[in-house]
Design a protein around this nucleic acid. Structure first.
Length: 464
DNA sequence: TTTTGAGTTGTTCGA
DNA sequence: GTCGAACAACTCAAA
């Protein structure tokens, strides 16, 4: 008897941990442990998505003769207990990269015979390293090495029948409302992948930047919990490259594959440099004099900054637990560079709000935006929220969807409504400063301020 | 060891 | 309106 310890691999298809647990031909008990981390989290939407995903997985297991055993408590204690109850020999799980997961797995490994297999990404973090064995810290060479590494072109089969599970106690996760935009589960992940492959992937290169269009795969929550295997996604995208009608479509598919590689790049960064969760990767940007005004942070969180594209994004996040990637960059840049709030505040808010919130990707994204990370944006790159809005939401449809106060504002002013005369505001039925805030900072003032703040940090002598 | 080329996603200014 | 340069050096990866 073996245990398949489910963590971030809520799927039966192409699952290395499950396959390994089954390989000896004996029984397998699928187990999920609800630890303190998962039970006491402020990330309500992600928690609800996970819990509903567990019910979905249980359902899929039951239709094959198995079921999911759910326990609450300390993973090491609970796994040891279950192993004793069913005299399980080995525990199989997918390797995770966060410091918390690594510590937890070490503790578990002292109590049971734990085998960690690859799977969170296509290539495990230790596999994609330079010839001298050190990790990459620049994306492009990392991606070249990643692409050069062979991996099986066969996904692992979904077992048709699974061994029955002895009748243990199973704690069923509490019922929480599932966020409407994202139904959890493997079937839904496969459906979204198929939809994306049937069209949008071929336009991805340009359409992905447009929050007013459905140009992205919307698969991030499914990748986050392993409801879809990264390998299957990459294989499917490679097939799409073959089917692509022209160069443009081919490079769109490659761009999407690149995004999956970015995900693994940041997993690798967190694995090799766990301190990034505490501080800037770049020592020279560890002493930026932040303003950290609570009222600025609050205005940003609530979508009341007076910059429509920023507010639309923050309200989309609050309402749905998801935000379009282009808008994640704009809102993040605004918090860090315009409001001069420490990027870790934004990182924390995103982790609390996002259904797809993942420590590696989220930290990588924030450090990239702040310019503090590996291969990050140059510090002097400051997104202008008006230009970004006009470029990527040209008709203002995205803004109007999430900031209904601006519904009647003409296209010309939709990304800078404070420029309307009072007659124009009257006609648009929105008084700036009353119905919708005036900009909380002036773009050019903020720009000057952040450049000064960064140069101050850069001129500070750093001892590592 | 040294050298060389390169590096996700922008903005602003002046010609 | 369009274009190229400056922004600011810096560090990494690989030959």
């Amino acid at each position: 008897m073996n245990i398949w310890w489910v963590r971030r691999d809520l799927r039966l298809s192409d699952n290395q941990a499950l396959t390994a647990a089954l390989s000896e031909g004996g029984g397998v008990v699928p187990v999920f442990i609800l630890d303190e981390h998962l039970l006491n989290t402020p990330a309500e939407k992600r928690q609800a998505f996970l819990f509903a995903g567990l019910r979905e997985l249980d359902h899929d297991l039951r239709s094959r003769g198995s079921r999911l055993v759910i326990r609450r408590g300390d993973p090491a204690t609970e796994l040891a207990r279950i192993a004793a109850e069913c005299s399980a020999a080995d525990v199989y799980a997918e390797q995770d990269v966060t410091p918390y997961a690594i510590r937890r797995d070490l503790a578990v490994g002292r109590k049971v015979n734990l085998h960690l297999v690859g799977g969170l990404g296509v290539h495990p973090p230790a596999a994609v390293v330079k010839s001298d064995g050190n990790p990459y810290t620049v994306f492009t060479p990392y991606s070249r090495a990643w692409r050069a590494l062979p991996f099986s072109s066969q996904t692992l089969p979904t077992p048709a029948v699974l061994p029955p599970v002895p009748a243990f106690f199973s704690a069923v996760p509490p019922d929480l409302p599932v966020p409407d935009l994202f139904q959890p589960g493997e079937r839904e992940a496969q459906r979204r992948l198929a939809v994306f492959l049937s069209g949008a992937i071929y336009e991805y290169q340009d359409a992905r930047n447009r929050p007013d269009l459905d140009g992205t795969s919307t698969l991030s929550p499914y990748f986050r919990f392993g409801m879809l295997s990264a390998r299957q996604a990459v294989l499917a995208a490679r097939q799409a490259v073959e089917n692509a009608p022209d160069t443009q479509a081919r490079s769109s598919c490659e761009t999407w594959i690149n995004e999956i590689i970015w995900r693994e790049f940041y997993q690798s960064i967190l694995y090799h440099f766990p301190f990034v969760l505490q501080t800037a990767f770049k020592p020279s940007l560890r002493s930026i004099p932040w303003q950290n005004k609570p009222q600025d942070l609050r205005a940003w969180q609530m979508g009341l900054t007076g910059y429509p594209i920023v507010d639309a994004g923050m309200r989309q996040l609050a309402a749905t637990g998801w935000m379009h990637n282009r808008v994640r960059m704009i809102t993040a840049s605004f918090l860090v560079k315009h409001l001069l709030v420490d990027w870790r505040e934004g990182e924390r808010w995103f982790m609390r709000s996002l259904i797809d919130g993942d420590p590696a990707a989220n930290n990588g994204g924030w450090q990239w935006t702040a310019g503090t990370g590996t291969d990050a944006a140059p510090f002097f790159r400051i997104f202008n929220p008006v230009i970004q809005g006009e470029k990527f939401d040209p008709a203002g449809e995205y803004v109007r969807r999430w900031v209904p106060e601006l519904e009647r504002v003409p296209q010309k002013f939709i990304h800078a409504p404070w420029k309307m005369s009072s007659e124009q505001q009257h006609a648009a039925r929105v008084m700036i400063g009353i119905d919708y805030p005036a900009p909380i900072v002036d773009h050019f003032v903020a720009r000057r301020r952040v450049l000064d703040a960064y140069s101050q940090s850069r001129s500070t002598i750093v001892s590592e």
